[in-house]
Design a protein around this nucleic acid. Structure first.
Lengths: 134, 134
DNA sequence: GTTTAGTGAATAATTGTTATCATAAAAATT
DNA sequence: AATTTTTATGATAACAATTATTCACTAAAC
């Protein structure tokens, strides 16, 4: 079993605190407020360890950075095409999809994930009327 | 309009030739067989240009590398958790999902994508019986 | 034929992540 | 409680994928 060091506990707490799905460096900034001497490598290492042991999820979403999620139940996400932020989305999980896919692919299917793309409220406000010239 | 240079045409042809969704460097290797002096930068630049102009798709899938797709119609993908390969999957696109999501999120939804994960036939063969000790 | 803009190849720079390693902390052993 | 063993940490270096920069060259416009 994985040992719950101070660093790991605080990383986990900070991750559980937010509904967004922070990147490693975002989490690093959050954790550093409580543990100023922690290294970025420690954050990466522990996020990977916790993901491997199933405590958290490492999201395989689009964008350049990996994101992390303290909620391990199956659910879908939406990603902002403008700022890259990722949020949960409350759309029922379609388990039939896996059965459907099994029939048409030679792959051994392990799971599926739905990722919506859109513009988050914050980014919408920033450029609300791109063609308004008042 | 984007000019169809020799390099772009060959990149496009090589991409259209395969049903897998190669990364930039895979495509680089493919293209180099016909255009040995092309640079990796040229492949990256032109893939991005063609994706921006809508000629091809830049896939926002999991994994460390971006992948490209000559088929621009809406469809889903499956990614091998073992080798990272991405293939098309013939499961009908569920347009209702966007409508459903619109009701539960403050995001302005632009689209969605389903990504299955599994083990591809090649990787299945490689380790068919992981717990057999004969 | 000259100018101008765009292209391509080579190289350098950037970004996100992973590996290395001496030190520190915790656990196990005596 | 002191010592040994193990494991984790933090600082730094290394790495991989991508992007930006540079500049000779090509192709179109004048």
């Amino acid at each position: 079993m994985i040992r719950l060091t101070t660093q790991r506990q605080i990383i986990l707490e900070e991750l559980a605190k937010v509904t967004s799905h922070p990147t490693a460096s975002e989490l690093y900034d959050m954790v550093r407020k409580r543990l100023p001497r922690i290294g970025l490598g420690t954050v990466y290492r522990n996020l990977d360890l916790m993901a491997d042991s199933g405590m958290i999820l490492k999201l395989e979403v689009g964008g350049t950075q990996k994101r992390f999620d303290a909620t391990t139940e199956d659910h879908y996400h939406i990603r902002c095409s403008s700022c890259g932020k990722v949020d949960d989305i409350d759309v029922p999980v379609i388990q039939e999809l896996v059965a459907q896919a099994t029939e048409t692919t030679p792959y051994l299917i392990m799971g599926h994930h739905v990722e919506f793309s859109g513009i988050c409220p914050t980014c919408r406000e920033k450029k609300p009327h791109p063609d308004t010239t008042d």
